[in-house]
Design a protein around this nucleic acid. Sequence first.
DNA 1: GCGGCTTCTGAAAACGTTTCCAGTTAGATG
DNA 2: CATCTAACTGGAAACGTTTTCAGAAGCCGC
Lengths: 337, 337
Amino acid sequence: MNASGKTASIKDVALAAGVSVATVSRVLSNGPVSEALRKRVEDAVRATGYRPNLSARRLRSQHSQTIGLVVSDIRNPFFTAVSRAVEDAAYRAGMRVILCNSDENPEREELYLRLMQEERITGLIFAPTCATLDRLDTLDLDFPVVLIDRNAPTARHDAVVLDNPRAAAMLVEHLHAQGYRRIAGLFGNTSTTGQERYEGYRSAMSARGLAPAARFLAPYADAAEQAVVAWMAEHDRPEAFIVSNSLFLMGVVKAARRLKLPIPDGLAVAGFDNEPWTELVGPGLTVIEQPVQDIGQSAMALLFERLEAPDRPRRRLVLGGTCIVRGSTAARMADAD
Amino acid sequence: MNASGKTASIKDVALAAGVSVATVSRVLSNGPVSEALRKRVEDAVRATGYRPNLSARRLRSQHSQTIGLVVSDIRNPFFTAVSRAVEDAAYRAGMRVILCNSDENPEREELYLRLMQEERITGLIFAPTCATLDRLDTLDLDFPVVLIDRNAPTARHDAVVLDNPRAAAMLVEHLHAQGYRRIAGLFGNTSTTGQERYEGYRSAMSARGLAPAARFLAPYADAAEQAVVAWMAEHDRPEAFIVSNSLFLMGVVKAARRLKLPIPDGLAVAGFDNEPWTELVGPGLTVIEQPVQDIGQSAMALLFERLEAPDRPRRRLVLGGTCIVRGSTAARMADAD
DNA sequence: GCGGCTTCTGAAAACGTTTCCAGTTAGATG
DNA sequence: CATCTAACTGGAAACGTTTTCAGAAGCCGC
């Protein structure tokens, strides 16, 4: 505070130290200043309780030192983990992060993209919906974008994604090896991720002479629960489900419980995202673990590389998942239902 | 972009529309401008692709329209839920949110508090560690602070908290009514929340003539798992555990599994935070549900009221929790171990 | 037709920084 | 002792806005 009760500015510090504002600025940015003055200024900074004003600094230096991160839902532990990794990497590089939830809603995405422009962010890490992904190229944003979790082959942006087709295929392989044949799939209908996982599922099924049977759902546990309950009442009830996210995993478990079907004997299930609780549910749930830490760090790395070399050709980083086998896909008992 | 390839500024718009920058500014803020000029300016905004620069705007208007939110760990679903509520309320009021993770680390808290000052935030919503809480009064921040989840009776800040003693007592009551007597407690050692829950536990136990037996742990699932495993090897092994957060809940479930103790017959357990998965683990876990939505919204409400009336006396909002009874605390079987 | 309104508009100052440029000083060199 | 350099310092411009202030119209009633 200065005499007038307002927050101290660099002028107040300069006045207190008996130097010019230029000198104060230099002290703060480790510029060339004599020891004597530096000391005086530092004392004045302490005395006044001065804190630099980031808005002014950003305006003048034309550098926001800020990166944007737009995810579809921060409550999804996959995104919380990724955002932690991104933030840690950003802070290590002396940058701030602005985190936003799109809720899988293209309008909110648009809103936040506009916000990012107004904040003059240095770069964006983005998990877009299909709708926004399609028109991303037409948007001409004035910062580089790295896509995470989702991406289209056509987009011209850098991206870090899981090898979704392969991961889904791993689940099919595993279930097949365990003796399951009627393997159904539930996939999210808002992102490319669901589509890619479906593709992997479909081709792995076909390759084994099995008939794929998939449904696409809105990303809520309830949707999955209802779908499973309905499906299990049909003629060719599945022996196992492959689901494309952890919400669906919950839905399937709930449905099994409601239908009094034991896991895995009544109904096997495998899915994505190795969240802590998947180990604790029933006999443990078989899942694909994504390298969340790596995804976040790599996204930042790609972003920094892009900032240094704006014209280098686009790069996609495809990371492999790990199949964590648990009791929910134990070998199928030979029965004849 | 203007001719020189840089992002368009208000000057470029003014030039394109053939008006002064003042007029452009007035159009953007719905000031008094004739229809003819308004139209010309709006066209020019579109033509130039102009986006206001928030740093400049904030600097000039001396109003950041930003609130800070510092939580201990965004991966904790309690805080994710609260932060969603805060953000939604903030955006509805036309404000931005800066979200930071302290990791229960006082140094990071200090770092972020400094950042908040430099961002010139309008107000802060904060879940501090004990260490920072103790010296919060000495810090003289130049924005109002609303504490959430944690607070000390001595602090002079507004706060929104769960009725922790009552909630913990509810769990004791419930376990007692179900026939449990040797009820142990595991509480977090970094926050006042753990202490308050311990107090409720202790006095409810004493009131029933039961001997409290509590341990304080670092907030990790592993810590709880190890504590339980060790404790169950001791002479007076507990029949039930009350734990103060969902990480400990996981730890207890893991320990029970490792020790091959069925829940609840071998070991009953009850805890805090009604996360989706608690319903799915074993026979379902009995928990206290916190009104997370309400906590976030109320924190924002308290903050806005404080901004309007800086001198009104401090207010604490104490919200009640709901006890969700599930199988993990089913009536104790009469045995004689 | 003229003073007194209202209504709109533009020039310019200000917000708190950084940075360019021009001094000033002190020390080294001739 | 005069000059040249190196090292430091301060004045002032600039970043992109908002806002104050004063001027320029247009309109009213007399």
